[in-house]
Amino acid sequence: MEHKWGGQEVINGYTISKNALFPIKEYTYQWLDYILKGAEKPAFLKDKINYQIIGTDEWRSAASLEAMHNSYLKFYLSSSKVSDKEYLLTQNKPEYNKYLVQKVDFADRTTSNNDYYPDPIIRDSVAGNGYVFISEPLDAMLVNGSFLGNIKLSINKKDIDLGVTLYELTPDGKYFHLSYYIGRASYAKDNTKRQLLTPGKKETITFENTHLISKQLRKASRLVVVLNVNKNPFSELNYGSEKAVATETIADAKEPLIINWFSDSFVEVPVLK
């Protein structure tokens, strides 16, 4: 017998709440009748945006994506250490000229970077070869919408593919994947026109097209940002030359990429208070 509910009960190792499952085929036909045939508006469509809050059994609605949140929390990617491998994600603006240095050797195919994809959604560690920034414990809050970013960097080449991944670190030490950004720096200002970076110059990479999330964070949870360069065997690698990336070869990877990640970089996390 066909299951009447849409979606999956377990996604990338995470068991979703029972109320998150809904009869998607039935709702789709009701919506089509409403749009195409003038039928009564389906009761489940409270407003233009309808979303389920992860960590609860609750559905909510909003008039627009912007109306999902009424505030942003701004966190800087500071160079202050909180442990041997972690740095402070702080709401206090750090000194302007502080930075962390990362070296990525694209000619070395024995290593990989940027484990940004949410599989598994909950994991025990995010330690790797990028930089990890962790906040102080926070009050319970509803993260609601798409997070934004402003990454300030300088590199020794002309382009870079970077990734920024956002996690909730729960009080019991689990990392819950909230959202991520992955993008090519040369298209950050205009995704229709490539604009190469100037080697050695401090540049700003702004992004906002991250995966939407609605998640109830537990009291004493922390927010975690993982910053890295995209380098994995499943991607088209950007070696940072002037060439079109699709035409680059391993011969363009001779000189390792050196990145200065400046600590006045920040992310803004949307919350509904």
Rank of each mutant, 00 (worst) to 15 (best):
A20L: 05
I11E: 09
H69A: 07
N230I: 15
T247D: 00
G240C: 05
S78R: 00
L142N: 02
T210P: 04
L223N: 01
A253Y: 03
D108C: 13
P137H: 03
Y131L: 14
K85M: 08
D47W: 08
I121C: 03
P137M: 02
D105M: 01
G130W: 06
A67M: 04
N92H: 15
E236D: 06
L32F: 11
L223C: 02
P171W: 05
S154A: 14
Q30Y: 03
Y131W: 13
T170Y: 08
K98Q: 15
Q216F: 10
L272C: 09
L45H: 10
V143G: 09
V10L: 12
D105Y: 10
N209Q: 15
A220F: 08
K254D: 05
P120N: 03
E248S: 00
I24D: 12
G13T: 06
A67K: 10
L212Y: 13
Y131C: 08
T192M: 13
P233M: 02
S64Y: 07
E255D: 14
G149M: 01
A253C: 03
I35W: 12
L77E: 08
G145M: 01
E248K: 00
Y87K: 00
F262N: 00
S78D: 07
L178K: 03
V271K: 04
Q8P: 11
T28G: 12
